Simulated scan of single mutants.
Amino acid sequence: MTETISHTVGLKDLPRLVGTALGTSDPIRITQHQIDQFADATNDRQWIHVDPERAKQGPFGTTIAHGFLTLSLAPSLFWQLLDVTGSDQVINCGIGRARFTAPVPVESHVRLAAEITAVEPCKGGYQLTAALTFLVEGSERPACIADMIIRYLGDISV
């Protein structure tokens, strides 16, 4: 699968993106191996995530991804949607809010939709806020909604 960037913009032009929907990323398949690795890394080995046999009898009929696993995909999927040229450094400042609104069953395909909601000057560049929506194929509800905050630093006078 090729990763295509839907928007390329120069650092100084970031403020013009406020209100822009960036489109959706390529889908990524969520595997049991990914879920197990995330469980090992975070010590969150709840059966609904890591025990396929028990999960068959659970509320979703299969294992589901951790909400934070889904959220952790934000940077890599977001980079497919926006490329900022002229930035010397990009800093992921975190999440402003996040809600896990639907499960992500194992073997699901997840895509990210993003909209730029704010761009504010900060020391050395701009701070961007993007409203993220994680979409799961076959689900009517998004798996997660969140605001991601990123700083793009560089010479904005150019």
Rank of each mutant, 00 (worst) to 15 (best):
T62W: 06
L82A: 01
L153P: 08
A130N: 03
Y152H: 10
T101N: 03
Y126V: 11
H66D: 13
A146R: 12
Y152T: 04
V110I: 03
G94E: 03
D88Q: 11
T42P: 07
L77R: 11
F78T: 00
S72H: 10
E140W: 06
V90H: 14
C144G: 01
E107W: 15
T63E: 03
S87D: 07
I64N: 10
Q127M: 14
W47Y: 05
Y152S: 00
A146D: 06
P121W: 12
P103M: 07
E137N: 05
C93I: 12
I64R: 13
E140Y: 13
H109N: 09
R45V: 01
W47A: 12
C122G: 00
A74D: 03
G138Y: 13
L77Q: 02
A102V: 00
C93F: 11
I95V: 15
S108K: 14
I145P: 12
H49V: 00
L82I: 13
K56W: 10
I149K: 13
M148N: 12
A98T: 05
A146W: 15
E140N: 10
I64F: 10
A74Q: 03
Q89P: 05
F68P: 02
P59V: 05
E107K: 08
E140V: 04
D147M: 14
K56N: 11
T63N: 04
T133F: 13
D83R: 15
G58L: 03
L69W: 11
I48S: 08
G138A: 01
W47T: 10
G94Y: 03
T117I: 10
E120D: 11
A102P: 08
S139D: 12
A74H: 09
I91V: 10
A146Q: 04
G154S: 05
N92G: 06
C122W: 10
F68S: 01
H49D: 10
S87R: 07
P52M: 05
C144E: 08
G96K: 12
A74G: 01
A118C: 06
F100H: 07
R97P: 12
Q89G: 04
S87Y: 15
V110Q: 12
F134Y: 14
R45D: 13
A65Y: 14
T101A: 03
R111S: 06
G124S: 01
V136E: 07
F134K: 14
M148F: 14
G154M: 08
L135Y: 15
L73G: 02
L77D: 00
D40N: 15
Q80H: 05
L135E: 15
P121G: 02
